[in-house]
């Protein structure tokens, strides 16, 4: 068995897919794994994959031209998931690899994505759904604060790498605002300048002092929001369990109105 060890990123996994296909070792003898495995198997050969933009581009081109954008989007969303491998479930990179092989042999990407009976396709479906969910939750629960210099700032802790999707949404929604979204899990920042497109950057250069200096009005609007939040609940219908079900605890620490309960 040959195991290709991929980096947990779009480039890492797609380069892995490319290398695995190009190695001509026979698909049945190949497995992909995301990140360094915890335990090495005795009779497997481990091949590290160096991410390459060139190979990634080739894979993307093949996928989009042969199976369409929708197929690529599903694969992309699955790759963006933070869940890499567990004992029970299939590895992320391996699921991507096998699904692409399946699509290549069948020639119809949409048809492959519907055959949930295949373990790899089901895994892609699961990962995709999880990422979508996480992304949507962040559109809901992300909170901006206004800084001294008028910039809107939000920090988030997503499980999956959903920052590009979120940034896209807020660029469309708030075109006239300067805003920053700081993904603390993945240490990346999305920066948006008014009337421009957004860009993604590494969080190394982020000035951690500046993001704590709020504008004059910020406290007042927070207070107003808390007032609204507390008064909108109907007492005889109180149902904390339902509240948590709809809005899991792990989001609370980033939310203006709930950080006091977190």
């Amino acid at each position: 068995m040959y195991v290709f060890v991929c980096e947990d990123s779009l480039e890492g996994i797609f380069t892995g897919v490319y290398d695995a296909c190009a190695s001509r070792l026979g698909h049945r003898n190949i497995r992909l794994t995301t990140g360094e495995p915890e335990n090495y198997e005795l009779f497997s050969e481990y091949i590290p994959v160096t991410p390459s933009a060139d190979k990634t581009g080739k894979v993307i081109r093949t996928i989009t031209s042969r199976f369409g954008m929708q197929f690529y989007e599903s694969i992309y969303q699955a790759v963006m998931s933070g869940e890499t491998h567990s004992d029970k479930k299939m590895d992320k990179a391996d699921a991507v690899y096998e699904t692409i092989l399946l699509a290549l042999s069948c020639g119809d990407g949409q048809k492959v994505l519907l055959s949930l009976g295949e373990p790899c396709v089901y895994r892609i479906f699961e990962l995709c759904r999880a990422t979508n969910h996480e992304a949507h939750r962040h559109l809901e629960f992300l909170r901006f604060s206004e800084l001294e210099n008028g910039v809107l700032f939000a920090s988030i802790h997503p499980k999956d790498n959903v920052l590009p999707y979120i940034a896209e949404h807020f660029t469309d929604r708030l075109p006239s605002e300067n805003f920053m979204i700081y993904d603390e899990t993945h240490q990346t920042v999305a920066v948006h300048k008014a009337y421009k497109s957004y860009l993604l950057a590494d969080a190394d250069d982020l000035d951690l002092d500046k993001i704590k200096r709020y504008s004059e009005n910020e406290q007042e609007y927070r207070k107003l929001w808390l007032t609204f939040f507390d008064h909108i609940a109907i007492d005889p219908r109180r149902n904390p369990k339902l509240q948590i079900q709809m809005m899991p605890r792990r989001y609370w620490s980033d939310m203006t109105e709930l950080i006091r309960f977190a």
Partner: peptide
């Protein structure tokens, strides 16, 4: 639609 929060009664805001 997007729900932005959930009040203590579990209804969406």
């Amino acid at each position: 639609g997007i729900c932005h929060s959930f009040a203590a009664d579990g209804r969406c805001i």
